[in-house]
Design a protein around this nucleic acid. Structure first.
Length: 350
DNA sequence: CAAGCGTGGTC
DNA sequence: TGACCAAGCTT
């Protein structure tokens, strides 16, 4: 006879196994009355969208040191925030991060709203993040449903309907289990369980506090859940980027349009990305083509960039973009694909 | 509402 | 090495 999953069993597991994270108030401190900073909870949740804890840590430290409060962030320059986000990906998050900070600073007196529905109105805050902030920062009994929770619920209930169709029923299962006591710790506990025990591959069912409640464990189906709709193959696109270096060392860069791929980020001027890109040199010069392409994979396509370089005189005007002085240039302000192109040139590839 | 939107780690 | 995957949101 399978037992009903018990939130207190999971909380006891969390008390012993909660992972330390820069934005987390560990369960012992929380019981002692330490209250999380909603700004830090929100910041971490935005960064953690579709992004691993390991990747987020250094960015979280950099952002919270440079902008310790939401008001500090609201007063930041757009370009500084985008540059600090460079390398983390999904750059719409950075644009919305800043928008949201300004709304909180201007419309909410610098204090994050504490209820799910108001949080949901903020830029970049969807159902998951609204539930995460209201439960983790304000200990409200909201239900977080991320990829971890979907997987845990699919296994607990041996749900074979493929995602995303299964999302509503998995959400219902998750809501039904959410306790009124310690909902913030509970939310983090389910996600920790999914990240460390109930993993996508080779789940450690032997260590799971919910094993005796798990239908997939009973049926031996854990490893094949959750089912997912098949994914489309990624096409390969081609493009050309132009790395112009002025003789004083300045680099020709442009700020990309605010929407779309790499929106608002710095990048090398170049062609469109498609099957057969046409030349789009941003300045008159003797361009040399590198033998090696810069390769990069985005969410929905592979990209192979032809890299061209040239040395240009001081007095020549580009048709697009702006020269950035050598002292102001920092490759870490570029999105990764643009760094790859730069690295080929900087390492003297030909 | 399906598609667009990054990156680094893993096997 | 290439496909899959990760604490989703927006349009």
């Amino acid at each position: 006879m399978r037992e009903r999953a018990d939130s207190s069993a999971l909380l006891e597991w969390y008390d012993r196994h909660a992972r330390a994270m820069p934005w987390r108030v560990p369960p012992h401190d929380r019981k002692a009355g330490v209250v999380p900073d909603p700004y830090r909870v929100w910041m971490s949740e935005i960064m953690l969208q579709q992004t691993t804890v390991a990747a987020v840590k250094s960015f979280f430290e950099a952002f919270t040191q440079r902008w310790p409060t939401v008001t500090d962030l609201a007063n930041a320059e757009d370009a500084d925030v985008m540059a600090e986000w460079a390398g983390l990906g999904y750059y719409a998050r950075a644009r919305n991060l800043l928008k949201c900070a300004r709304v909180v600073a201007n419309d909410y007196d610098g204090k994050f709203p504490d209820d799910h529905d108001t949080l949901l109105t903020l830029p970049g805050v969807g159902p998951y993040t609204a539930a995460a902030v209201s439960s983790i920062a304000f200990d409200r009994p909201e239900t977080v449903v991320d990829g971890n929770v979907e997987r845990v619920m699919a296994r607990l209930y041996d749900e074979h309907t493929p995602l995303p169709n299964a999302k509503p029923i998995l959400t219902e299962y998750a809501r039904d289990l959410t306790p009124d006591e310690r909902p913030g710790d509970y939310a983090q506990a389910v996600m920790d369980l999914g990240a460390t025990i109930c993993t996508p591959r080779n789940p450690a069912c032997g260590l799971c506090p919910w094993r005796k409640s798990c239908a997939a464990w009973e049926n031996g189906t854990a490893a094949e859940l959750p089912k997912k709709a098949p994914k489309k193959r990624k096409p390969t696109r081609h493009g050309i980027v132009y790395l112009a270096r002025r003789i004083d060392g300045a680099w020709l860069l442009e700020q990309r349009p605010d929407s779309g791929l790499l929106g608002g980020m710095l990048g090398w001027p170049g062609s469109d990305w498609g099957d057969d890109p046409s030349e789009a040199a941003p300045i008159r010069a003797e361009w040399k083509t590198l033998n090696e392409e810069a390769r990069h994979t985005f969410t929905h396509f592979h990209l192979r960039l032809t890299v061209k370089t040239a040395l240009v005189p001081l007095d020549r005007e580009p048709s697009t973009g702006m020269f950035i002085e050598a002292d102001d240039f920092d490759r870490s302000n570029l999105p990764t694909v643009m760094r790859k192109a730069y690295d080929l040139v900087a390492k003297g590839k030909t």
